[in-house]
Design a binder for these strands. Structure first.
Lengths: 341, 341
DNA sequence: CTGAAAGCGCTTACAG
DNA sequence: CTGAAAGCGCTTACAG
């Protein structure tokens, strides 16, 4: 591989001149520049970005740390993150943490050693050590779908889980429902907590006491939703609707109902959260709350870009709105279906 | 950020010594080494991987070029690629080409400039320019789900689309089907072509003439499958089964049938390809052909690792087997359901 | 076992 | 407009 030196030698000019042509610096005669450029082409010269990074203290790479690229949410975000960043000359190195604390830390260390210019992170564990690493990095970082620890002053971009849930609940209220069950994901999940908060507050605002027998914490899968629906129907038989904290759980609830000949939305209404593609399947048509997932990736990347350009460590966070998607799994209490009985 | 030089100065030793401690080179006294390591900790020293890459001519990064991380296939592969590579000390920079030739080339150029150690690629366009770039790279490259142009000698890893299709067809034959329709993705798609080949050859082996009225080329979506099913049912009404070249198409066929009260598998059997998660949904239960998608990513990464270690440009390709997944959308011709009529 | 020196491939003041 | 020189932060023969 020829270097800048080889080109210089061939042309009998100095490396400075070659460098100036390469970076189209103004201090070079147009003719000289053309000659150099031509020679570069002739010798198949490719600039060495590593050498350039070393001296410029800028690697033009950003890190993306997510729990699992296999999750449609994160892959959608990763897609847009890459798109806007690569358009701006950055390469993105990504890592799946698999929600393992050691891998999160390993990544942060790597960010430091590789001299990355900025990172977008969705951490699940932030102990003191990780927080300290994050600070020592001294580069722009934006949190995606997570809140940064107070005091770090780093921005985040996320959806308004709380409000999205309130909207879903209000929709259910507008249909006349009062006894509404909750099928949640694991208790420790951040998004799960936010959605639960929305559920409880909505109930309270209607003067309804949350009923612990109508609340179930589970995993995140269809099977979990299936089982939870069974339990809830038994423990709180007066329930007329169910809010599932994510679509997989909601689909599980639907499946339980289908297998046990429980009419949805006749006997019970079901609403989900996420708007996964499959919720729009002909057999499902789950009403749910949509999140602008691609938008999120784009916003995070643009925010980071802005911080890198202005060399700032802090910025305003971005909270995106959700959208209520009404399909076929909710109906009024005592509605047409009920009358048929 | 302290450098090796700062540490050396603090301790009154040479930079060589510090470097030796860092790389635990044998030529250093244990005590000295400990002192240095301790000082590094004290001053929060982090080695600069960029400088190291420059001098070692090894960046410890590999590139992953895929069409779209949002496609469950590629995200599954990307997951495992990252897992095995990061375990071996490599960082992976990924790019979505969005099936755009310019982005493919831009990536290849970047690989060259960034001095990546190896790449895994799923190209959709390989013109002469791209091929030349690929050769000039002079690093290990493995193709994923694509065949390298002959003469390059580069290995690929993929699933046996042809055989998977033959297995599905044989299953249909075993159920007594003879008039079998084909719903394909776009004609130019590599995987689509392979599966079509399997379809036609299977038919021929049974002495059945492929019927152009029972063959439909489409897009890749559920909606495409829906429309195709309508057309096929009209043009080839004697058809008793349909092979859909991917699951989305198969689901669309199922949806058309459901809406038009066409019994599946009673009136017509449907089989797909891919084994997407949603095909196992209670309402769908599509029989299909499974591909070991995570396995594919792992194999590609391990193959690349091996090539990088042995510094080879060539290796044996890996063709993975598919698995026939029998669920509920296929039944014998003149089977129980038919008798009910 | 330790250190001085050269060098990886660039960029960037500084002089002219 | 051009060139000589220093330097980015390391590693690696080479001498001792």
């Amino acid at each position: 591989m020829p270097t800048i030196k080889d080109i210089a030698k061939q042309l009998g000019v100095s490396v400075s001149t070659v460098s100036r042509a390469l970076n189209n610096h103004p201090d070079i005669r147009e003719e000289t520049k053309q000659e150099v450029l031509e020679a570069m082409k002739r010798f198949n010269y490719t600039p060495n970005a590593v050498a350039r990074s070393l001296i410029q203290r800028k690697s033009n790479t950003v890190g993306l740390m997510i729990p699992d690229i296999t999750d449609p949410f994160f892959s959608a975000m990763a897609h847009d993150v890459e798109e806007v960043l690569s358009e701006n000359g950055y390469q993105v190195v990504y890592v799946n943490t698999s929600r393992r604390p050691d891998k999160e830390k390993r990544f942060l260390t790597s960010v430091m050693e590789r001299k990355m210019d900025g990172i977008i992170v969705t951490p699940d564990f932030l102990d003191e050590e990780a927080i300290e690493l994050l600070q020592r990095l001294d580069i722009p970082v934006v949190f995606l779908r997570r809140r940064p620890p107070a005091g770090l002053g780093m921005p985040f971009v996320d959806v308004n889980h709380y409000e999205g849930t309130c909207n879903a609940m209000d929709y259910l209220f507008s249909l006349g429902h009062r006894r509404i069950g909750f099928i949640g994901m694991p208790r420790y999940s951040f998004t799960g907590q936010e959605r639960y908060r929305g559920y409880v507050d909505s109930l309270n605002r209607q003067g309804i006491e949350p009923d612990s027998k109508a609340i179930s914490w589970n995993g995140r899968t269809i099977e979990c939703g299936y089982k939870a629906m069974g339990r809830l129907l038994q423990d709180a038989p007066d329930m007329t609707a169910v809010f599932a904290a994510n679509d997989l759980l909601g689909i599980g609830a639907l499946e339980y109902s289908a297998r046990h000949h429980i009419a949805v939305p006749g006997r019970i209404s079901v609403i989900g959260f996420d708007n996964l593609e499959m919720t729009n399947l002909h057999w499902i048509k789950l009403s749910t709350v949509a999140q602008p997932r691609k938008e999120m990736g784009r916003q995070a990347a643009e925010l980071l870009l802005q911080m890198m350009q202005s060399n700032q460590r802090t910025a305003d966070s971005i909270i995106l709105d959700t959208e209520l998607i009404i399909r076929s799994t909710c109906s009024p209490v005592n509605g047409p279906d009920d009358n048929k009985e």
